[in-house]
Amino acid sequence: MIKRNSPTARAIAPALVVGLLAFLLTVDLNTQNSASKINATRRSELAAIVAERQKSTAALESRLAQLRAQVAAIAASAGSATLRNLQGTMAGIEAASGSTAVSGPGIVVRLADAASTDQSVNQQDSRIQDVDLQEVVNALWDAGAEAVAINGQRLVSTSAIRNAGSAVLVNFRVLTSPYLVDAIGDPSAMRASFEASTIARHFKTWEQVYGLGFSIEQPSTVQVPAYTGSVRFRYAQIQNAR
């Protein structure tokens, strides 16, 4: 047994400690290395999954459009008077529910994130948030809009506008700045009413303070595409069907 104060112990103990340091250092290097590797592989895996899902969604959507066109063609070829009558009613209902593309006079509200990423400004303040879009859309409905779409996503009765990270989701689609809110309705009346709304006045201030993009355009025709998502209700049932 080696005594605590023996010359051997005095030589060995510090050496062991230095060896321990070398060991700890290499273990730490290993650990940091593998950790960054795991993160990188995980990220690329997730990205691949997202890309794949987006592709399959696009494929399903084009199939849905095909089938809908088929249904329309079959319905059109069957030519009884009652059927045509019903089709007229259906066209009106479809336009109102958002399942057909519509166009007409209207306005386009353009919202954009601040161009400069000034570090002194809160990141949330320099970005368009879900609530901004919600309030703009509400103001447009209030101003008499008949059909509204954000970046080509038609708003229907089940549409949600919400944040997902730094992007905004509408109808479960990721949208990014700039956001174009198309609204069909009486252009001059809608524009006047919208410009007088609280959110429009806020945006005029925010444009100055945070550099957010905000403009209202009035093209001759506004195109609002059809809602492309599922419209089948699984739980809600029609009451007192007459």
Binding site: L21, A22, L24, L25, T26, V27, D28, N30, Q32, S34
Partner: peptide
């Protein structure tokens, strides 16, 4: 000391031990 240093590095590189993720911030 130098010998011990080399042995320590050798052990770390050779055995390739990795600390569990929950301990990783403390090492």
């Amino acid at each position: 000391v130098v010998l011990s240093l080399l042995v320590g590095i050798g052990l770390g590189v050779g055995l390739h031990p990795v600390v569990p993720p929950s301990w990783a911030p403390y090492l």
